[in-house]
Design a protein around this nucleic acid. Structure first.
Lengths: 170, 170
DNA sequence: TGTTGATTGACAGTATACTGACGATCTAGG
DNA sequence: CCTAGATCGTCAGTATACTGTCAATCAACA
């Protein structure tokens, strides 16, 4: 009895593979974001860092990397760029000489307020081709999948755990 | 009458935003791929290039970039690395001195055949946390969304158009 | 208290990605 | 035939990402 025939090796298999579709949607999402926000000279990553620092003033880089699921190594240069644009400032922590605390500058808070509508337009455009019910279904599935796959990628801490020492109530 | 209150500016809005979820799933997908395929020293991008060249032998770099939705600029270094590993070779096109045609080497064809099971395990793992019906729903929505958003990111040609001159029947 | 182990920020090295530009080449139109 | 425009591969510059490593620092335990 011959063994089971090998599946055909063609690019068409790639087009239907989750990995390819996620990469493609990420490309598209970044492209749409940059288009809507080009007046602000902020990347999606820089925007996420900004809003996270706004939400958690005085957070340090390691915890920030957990909160927005960046690599700690990458975050250094991201913060440098935000610092160069005068959107963020770093202050040494009094009790721990290793840590530098992150705060928004006045410019940072301003640009964050101003960019929000553009960001929301971008997020809406990404899903625009789908019908409303489909958008909701897709988002629900994605939230679930990302949550359940959380440990699959190198994220040192879960966001909630990362914030334990920040003195946040609720 | 006061104007509509501004939405709160917090990181929680980011967690539910499509752009964030797509970036996160892309991170997770790459991480799972690399884990399953680490014995082969191939990245997802290099794998896609390999299988596309296998499907379309003699394709040139520009058309390849359209077929797998890469940036043309990025593809140069990807091919270089595949060439350094002796998985791909480039031959000058006789009729057009600008073009270099891409072919798999014997090693390239071999590793492609061998890596397929690992790639399939990786693709399956990405969706594993979902129930079968949910996986199908998610993939359906993603295929649709990527297709309808195709022109949103810089892809010079649609895959079908890119292949017109390759003499492919069907 | 003194040392071990963990944590923090930083860095080097590699690999995508995208913009914009360039010379070499090809193609069409006049 | 000869030039204007398009295309090809490439490169420089910028921005994510990840692995692995390191010195400085801190925390915990013997």
């Amino acid at each position: 009895m011959p063994s089971k025939p090998a599946p055909p090796i063609t690019i068409d298999a790639v087009y239907a593979a989750p990995g390819y579709l996620f990469r493609r949607m990420q490309q598209i999402a970044v492209s749409i974001f940059m288009e809507e926000c080009k007046a602000f000279d902020l990347t999606p990553v820089q925007y996420a860092a900004l809003i996270a620092i706004h939400t958690h003033p005085g957070i340090d880089a390691t915890r920030l990397s957990a909160v927005i699921a960046f690599d700690r190594s990458t975050l250094g240069s991201v913060i440098e760029r935000l610092q160069a644009k005068d959107f963020v400032e770093r202050k040494p922590a009094p009790e721990d000489k290793r840590i530098k605390l992150l705060y928004l500058t006045k410019s940072g808070a301003t640009i964050l307020r101003e960019i929000i509508p553009a960001v929301e337009r971008a997020q809406a455009r990404m899903l625009e081709p789908l019908k409303p019910a489909e958008r909701k279904a897709l988002m629900g599935l994605l939230v679930q999948l990302v949550d359940l796959n959380n440990e699959a990628s190198r994220v040192p801490l879960r966001a909630e755990d990362a914030l334990e020492h920040l003195g946040k109530a609720g």
